[in-house]
Write a protein that binds this DNA or RNA. Structure first.
Lengths: 213, 213
DNA sequence: GTCTATATCTCGATAGAC
DNA sequence: GTCTATCGAGATATAGAC
């Protein structure tokens, strides 16, 4: 009944998956090679056989997660949508993804706190590629301004504000829950309410200004 | 010519200041007792003489910074201000403070990433005290709704959005600078523009809805 | 490729002289 | 109170047998 495929499944992949879990749980510094080895069902030496060092393992894992993260937005950014619809879908997806992959969000934040040297290549690439996520969104904002759907906002700051509103409450979850009974009782409901709040507030805030009476 | 006051200046205070700097630079885990000792101009053993352990030293430093942080808002929240003025002053102060005390913001974020166990007491106190910072702001939002200055927004989510918009771009500074030429060239100018953007966007977004025609 | 055993290092904490 | 010297835990990384 064995397919012959699942039996071995590559030690390297097992290590990679184990590392992903442990780094996510404990962070880059907090993670222990022993724990990764245990999770993968092998011993420490093999970790160094496949990936040279802890740093090497982390970089491999991080790069992979970051790419998945970026790709996850592809479906959301279909062209030709009215701006309010685009914003609503973007916020929905961003928050859903961030909740489901809280690990990734926390790792990314951790790297930023340490100076984000590891993000260097990925971000530099994003900056100069016209098809990168941030560039595509800023482009959509400019298009909406041009078509009169929204007023003349600064695209960079607006994107930053949207992202902040979607992510920050997850990174600050302990504080948010400590200060907010609703969030502590039912974080999932709190999250849904938050999507609505963000979309409403930002759409209103970006409303075109009416031309004098 | 020695006053007799500045000469010694308390070893404990010197340690405390040194710890503040080093913890801010390197984070809780990244900081080394040796480095703190060097910065204070004494040796490691004395650190343990005055504060029991590294954890003890960190908690002392953190608690002190957190209290200063909370107190810094006192002047901003004078009652009787019109809401737009209150929001503008709050955003201004928050961003100025966060920029000037980036250390504190980063430490706070780091603790949140690790579960924020150290924030426990401080946050629990804030939650139940009517005069705590978050409660006072949410109260101001409710008052503004009641007076008709703004529409019926959810106070908790609104506060969260304001805070996110003010802080997140500082925590994510490496990413923000990597993606944004303006921010990299002149972060100070970028910051001033950001204040304006946030205040404009949020005030518009909270505008009272006009009653039919 | 996979294991055991160990080298090497770093760091927090303590003992004990002064 | 302040120092020097050192302990001991815990981590990454490697050597070498199988």
């Amino acid at each position: 009944m064995t397919t012959g495929i699942e039996t071995t499944e590559g030690t390297e992949e097992r290590i990679f998956e184990a590392a992903r879990k442990v780094f996510a749980r404990k962070g880059r510094d907090g993670a222990r090679m022993q724990e990764i080895a245990d999770e993968a069902g092998i011993n420490r030496a093999l970790l160094h056989y496949y990936f040279r060092s802890k740093q090497g393992l982390f970089e491999a894992v991080f790069a992979h997660m970051f790419e998945q993260y970026m790709r996850s937005f592809d479906a959301v950014l279909e062209p030709g949508q009215p701006f309010p619809e685009l914003l609503r879908r973007f916020v929905d997806h961003y928050i859903d993804y961030a909740i489901e992959h809280e690990d990734m969000i926390r790792l990314m934040m951790g790297e930023n706190l340490r100076g984000a040297s590891i993000l260097g290549e990925a971000l530099a690439a994003a900056k100069h590629s016209e098809s990168s996520l941030p560039n595509r969104i800023e482009h959509a904002i400019r298009a909406a301004i041009h078509s009169g759907e929204i007023r003349e906002v600064d695209p960079s700051h607006t994107l930053l504000t949207i992202v902040s509103a979607c992510i920050h409450f997850i990174v600050m979850k302990p504080t948010v829950q400590a200060m907010n009974p609703d969030a502590e009782a039912d974080f999932s409901a709190f999250t849904e309410a938050r999507k609505q709040h963000i979309t409403d507030l930002l759409l209103l805030g970006m409303q075109p200004v009416e031309v004098a009476s």
